[in-house]
């Protein structure tokens, strides 16, 4: 399998803060790749840099073999990268159908065709009955579903999902996983950020672990939970405790 997305040495500084300091990751075409890491590791910043919402300070982002680092946000969407947000960003005063139609307009010249495509996507994600609701009147789970629908309507090659499971009940999580499987079956490649590793374990073929802005592991999910470096990043190392206590070499 070829790499759809290749990120090398991605760095992002906010003033003197190094949010990202060397992130490498590969996403194989047609796969579901998980991006995990402890709180504050830089997962969402990495996402923002890939999607074009933030300009990386250094490093390369190649999508379908083409360098896209620093490309304007709206152009990245046109190239075929869709995304959702960790904190849902709905179009509050648009109906569900209008919001998804807005996404569908990216690849459709006529409004009528965009509406028809949006209806199709809404049926696919299971929001068809709620299509005349306003975005702001939905539950959290439905808002997340709406974000996925809006991104899918742009017909992305690569879908970036930022903690779509966070804040969902176990039953809602189950439904979300089922939706994810169907999205993959459509041929969309998925890169998803998750804070909780258990969610990713059964569905991700490949996981990338970042900590303190760096990639520290890349491999299978099963391998990640056995990796000493990953365990250390999540739980903290004895050496670090030693440093804090003043016994560093």
């Amino acid at each position: 399998m070829s790499s759809l997305l290749e990120v090398r040495g991605l760095a992002k500084r906010f003033g003197s803060v190094r949010a990202l300091d060397g992130v490498d990751l590969d996403v194989a075409e047609g796969s579901l790749t998980g991006l995990i890491g402890p709180n504050g590791a830089g997962k969402s910043t990495a996402f923002a840099c890939i999607a074009g919402a933030e300009k990386p300070s250094a490093g390369s982002v190649r999508f379908r073999g083409r360098e896209i680092a620093g490309t304007a946000y709206h152009r990245v969407a046109a190239l075929g990268i869709g995304r959702t947000y960790q904190l849902v960003q709905t179009f509050a005063d648009m109906t569900v159908l209008e919001a998804v139609t807005t996404g569908a307009l990216l690849r459709r010249a006529r409004l009528r065709d965009a509406i028809a495509h949006a209806q199709e996507i809404l049926a696919f994600v299971g929001l068809a009955e709620k299509r005349y609701r306003l975005g702001r009147a939905l539950t959290v789970a439905d808002k997340k579903r709406l974000e996925v629908a809006r991104a899918l309507a742009t017909e992305p090659t690569l879908l970036l999902l930022d903690e779509v499971m966070a804040g969902l009940t176990p039953a809602e999580c189950g439904a979300a996983v089922e939706l994810l499987r169907r999205i993959l079956a459509r041929g969309v490649t998925v890169l998803m950020v998750e804070h909780v590793m258990e969610v990713l374990m059964p569905i991700a073929e490949h996981v990338v672990v970042i900590a303190a802005g760096k990639t520290i592991f890349s491999g299978t999910a099963a391998g990640a939970v056995r990796d000493a470096g990953v365990i250390e990043a999540y739980l903290g190392s004895p050496l670090e405790h030693g440093e804090i206590a003043g016994h560093a070499p």
Binding site: A51, G52, A53, A72, Y73, H74, R75, A77, A78, G82, R83, Y85, Q89, T90, F91, A92, D93, M94, E98, A99, T101, T102, G103, L105, L106, L111, A114, G135, E147, R150, A151, A153, T154
Partner: peptide, 26 residues
């Protein structure tokens, strides 16, 4: 109100970042 521009303007007003994420040039 029934055009691409109308949908895009309303989307931009509601949420400019989300609008950019679906390819809208603000």
């Amino acid at each position: 109100e029934r055009s691409r521009l109308g949908y895009y303007l309303r989307a931009l007003r509601a949420n400019h970042a989300a609008a950019a994420s679906v390819g809208i040039d603000e």
